[in-house]
Design a protein around this nucleic acid. Structure first.
Length: 818
DNA sequence: GAGTTTGAAACT
DNA sequence: CAGTTTCAAACTC
């Protein structure tokens, strides 16, 4: 294999203790960063291994949860130990994961590099996200390397799992044996075979029973979470491997087909729709496909280099990884969230694990699950935030779409692999960009979707999957808090009977059409523009759509992908969830007390721009999403009262007008919050720090409410003195604060007349919608991307705080300047 | 169901 | 980047 300059550089970097610069090398902070950064060690090592063909030990891709360690103020020495220990832990955990052994507390500790169980419980998102890779974000080689770093589950485990999951080898389709001879990655094929088996109803019960039992055995949530940390990553690797196979064996054919289709499409000769996908809405596997394209086609690495380990490629441990993911996701908050938002929960299997895993592997069950869209997608509207669930069903949909084994071979493996990848990347997505490329804004921005997607469980509408498949109108239950329902009932009672019926009609329609259940009616956009709700939501149109000349169908996948890429080129966040959960979106350090399913915590990411509807009609995206308008909105005469958190800005404005003194108190509170070591100190991430900006007169100064996205542009106005006294962590985020999400409250203080008009304060948006997002995207990269961000966002500002680590931060800046 | 309104998306 | 056009959903009648 040719060694590219990049490879040489990395190899050299590896041998030189992985330091980006001499200056950094000398910095304790940089060492600290290196220890915290999986890519610095694990990825680079794995990549080096791949390039050099050496048999280096499996790199310790152990996410040492910088947050926790910072929170606990782990010393550098401790961190070194942890990282080193992580190498062993990594292997240990892999073994345990594959074998699905009964977890023990010791194991939990092993899997948790910092030795703390609660850390991952407290930061499930971080844990998951760090283990995931948004393949779409692979602007660098980092992720591919990471994904293909040595993961070699035990053979016994392979056999065990494979046999149980897919039956004995003799029962397998020819595909498997053929692939086995070639020693090709079998992940996707196995998935395909599993789907076939499941479709035939041969293995469903056995599979489900196995999964559920195994999951029950692993009943220690914390362990599952910890496992998911590694499993998520490994699963991504495996999925990636599956995509590889697709690339090698299936993509050429499909690409020919797609090119041909594209040509026909351009000529308008293609007959839209196909029998094979009739009645089935399949999730667009944009991210997977994009990742596949990028990493395979656009990456300098040859496909072969991507898979350096046959065992890796064909490891069935993806299933166990999936299980672990499922376990982790259903664990604690995640499980409740998914269940809460379930669409027709009666159709769910008794066990969420069972349901989740079954869906993932393409079981053609009757399980009805949420679809949500994708980038992961993901309900570009509300439901899109349910990437997890939606992606789950994308797999199932693919299964349905591919009705024959031949199809599975030709398309299925690819699709399923991508689906799997999608599942994993989106479900556990979040902050992989931290380890990808600190300056990959687009990647980060796009990755945000994943993060939001997974996090915004509160807003997810279970994709009425059965409906999508069966084309039967099984109304989704609109996720809504009890209080919200009560309010709506009261409002409804006050309406005239006629109006009441109308409202009820809309509510029913709402429920039915709630994200994932949408049908478009496009006529001129060919369903290839964001006008099309299906396209925007990352799903293919279904037969029940009334669209005309629709190209948003599986057979036009390449076209769809191309169009989507074009759109994303214009706006990287175009396909990200429009509604995000404040709690999740804002910070990974949310607590158990925070109900992720509370719509009130959601907000429209970019905000609406209503002029006449007063945000009281469905024209308003906020209203449609049943979320309150936020500072991100530029609406006029806003009367949107949806949501409690964030409180509608206009309400806050009014309140502040009425109680200017309260504003001052809250400013003080905000400052106090910044200063509070016990509150801010534990969260070294940007997200956590950004919470400061969410202080509102009505909420606790340190609560994660009423996020003000619009404040970012004004954030530079924050007095440095306020921050200089803070106990912020020495991460990049530390310096991000004043330049991004400046507390709206602070600005309002100096401009009390700002809210005379009952409208969103962000009518005068200073920065593009994605600007803030990008900044915030960059920020969570925290330790990794801090330097980049510092350069870009605050080149002229000195370190803001006398924090003990401020010197390191200064060094970082200085180093970057050099 | 036709026509109108609305606001996001796309375009210039 | 602001203004305009296009588009499809939402809404009204």
């Amino acid at each position: 294999m040719d060694r590219t300059p990049e490879a040489n550089r990395i190899a050299a970097t590896k041998s030189s203790s992985i330091s980006s610069s001499p200056a950094v090398q000398e910095s304790p902070f940089s060492n600290f960063l290196s220890n915290l950064s999986p890519l610095n060690t694990a990825t680079t090592a794995s990549y080096t291994q791949t390039l050099l063909g050496t048999n280096l030990p499996t790199p310790p891709v152990v996410f040492t949860s910088p947050h926790i360690n910072l929170q606990r103020e782990t010393s550098f020495l401790e961190r070194d130990d942890i990282v080193e220990a992580g190498s062993e832990v990594y292997k240990e955990c892999n073994t345990n994961i594959v074998q699905i052994q009964n977890p023990s507390f010791e194991e939990v500790q092993l899997c948790s590099p910092s030795g703390c169980v609660d850390e991952y419980l407290a930061y499930p998102v971080e844990v998951d996200s760090t283990c995931s890779a948004d393949l779409r974000s692979q602007r660098t080689n980092e992720v591919p390397r990471l994904l293909h770093s040595g993961f070699s589950p035990g053979k016994e485990s392979n056999t065990e799992v494979c046999d149980i999951m897919f039956g004995s080898p003799e029962n397998e389709a020819v595909v498997l044996s053929d692939q086995a001879e070639k020693d090709l990655p079998l992940s996707s094929l196995e998935m395909s075979q599993a789907a076939i088996n499941q479709r035939d109803g041969k293995k469903t019960e056995e599979l489900s029973r196995f999964i559920f039992e195994k999951v029950r055995e692993s009943d220690v949530n914390s362990c599952l979470v910890s496992r998911a940390q590694n499993c998520g990553e490994n699963a991504v690797k495996l999925n990636r491997a599956g995509c590889q196979y697709d690339e090698k064996n299936a993509s050429s054919q499909s690409r020919e087909d797609s090119n041909e289709r594209k040509q026909r499409v351009q000529k308008g000769l293609v007959k839209e729709g196909g029998q094979n996908e009739r009645g089935i809405r399949r999730h667009l596997q944009f991210e997977a496909a994009k990742a596949y394209k990028f990493t395979i086609l656009g990456n300098s690495e040859s496909p072969n280099s991507l898979t350096h380990d046959g065992t890796n490629s064909r490891s069935p441990s993806i299933l166990t990884n999936l299980k672990s993911l499922a376990s982790s996701h259903f664990d604690n908050r995640a499980s409740s969230s998914l269940q809460d938002v379930s669409c027709d929960t009666s159709q769910f299997p008794s066990s969420p694990y069972e349901s989740f895993t079954s869906a993932q592997i393409g079981v053609n069950s009757t399980t009805s699950a949420p679809i949500h869209s994708g980038i992961g997608l993901h309900l570009n509207r509300i439901s899109r935030s349910t990437s997890l669930s939606s992606d789950i069903f994308s797999s199932k949909k693919s299964t349905g779409y591919l009705s024959t084994p031949e199809q599975m071979l030709e398309h299925g493996s690819n699709n399923i692999a991508m689906n799997s990848s999608s599942i994993l990347t989106s479900a556990v997505s979040g902050k992989i960009y931290v380890y990808v490329a600190s300056n990959q804004q687009e990647s980060q921005a796009v990755t945000e979707a994943n993060s939001f997607t997974f996090h915004s469980t509160d807003t997810m509408k279970p994709p009425c999957h059965s409906m999508l498949v069966d084309q039967e109108a099984a109304p989704c239950e609109v996720g809504m808090s009890a209080s919200q329902e009560t309010d709506e009932v009261e409002e409804l009672n006050q309406l005239s009977p006629k109006r009441k019926r109308q409202v009820q009609h809309y509510q029913r329609r709402d429920a039915y059409m709630s994200e994932g259940c949408k049908r478009c009616n496009c006529r001129r956009s060919k369903c290839l523009k964001l006008y099309c709700e299906c396209f925007a939501a990352g799903v293919y149109c279904v037969d029940s759509c009334a669209c005309v000349n629709c190209y948003n169908k599986p057979e036009f996948e390449d076209t769809v992908l191309d169009i989507r890429q074009q759109i994303e080129a214009r706006n990287p966040l175009a396909f990200t969830p429009k509604v995000v959960d404040n709690a999740i979106d804002s910070s990974p350090n949310f607590t158990e007390e925070q109900d992720l399913t509370t719509p009130s915590s959601a907000r429209h990411k970019r905000g609406c721009n209503c002029k006449k509807s007063k945000c009281l009609k469905r024209y308003c995206e906020c209203f449609q999403a049943k979320v309150g308008c936020s500072s991100a909105c530029r609406c006029e005469g806003c009367k949107n009262t949806f949501g409690v958190t964030p409180e509608p800005v206009y309400n806050r404005a009014k309140r502040w007008e009425a109680h200017p003194a309260e504003k001052l108190d809250n400013v003080k509170g905000a400052i106090a919050c910044i200063k509070a070591p016990g509150i801010i100190h534990y969260s070294p991430t940007w997200e956590g720090i950004s919470d400061i900006s969410k202080l509102t007169p009505l909420s606790h100064p340190c609560s994660r409410t009423a996020f003000s996205s619009a404040s970012s542009s004004n954030s530079a106005k924050i007095p440095q003195a306020q921050l200089s006294s803070s106990q912020l962590q020495p991460s990049g985020a530390h310096y991000d604060i004043p330049y991004d999400d400046t507390p709206e409250i602070l600005e309002e203080t100096s401009n009390p007349t700002k809210f005379v008009k009952a409208s969103s304060p962000n009518q005068k948006r200073v920065s593009p919608p994605q600007s803030r997002s990008r900044l915030r995207e960059r920020s969570p990269t925290g330790l990794r991307s801090g330097r980049k961000f510092i350069l870009q966002a605050m080149p002229s500002f000195p370190p803001l705080t006398p924090h003990r680590n401020s010197n390191e931060g200064t060094n970082e800046i200085e180093n970057d300047d050099k």
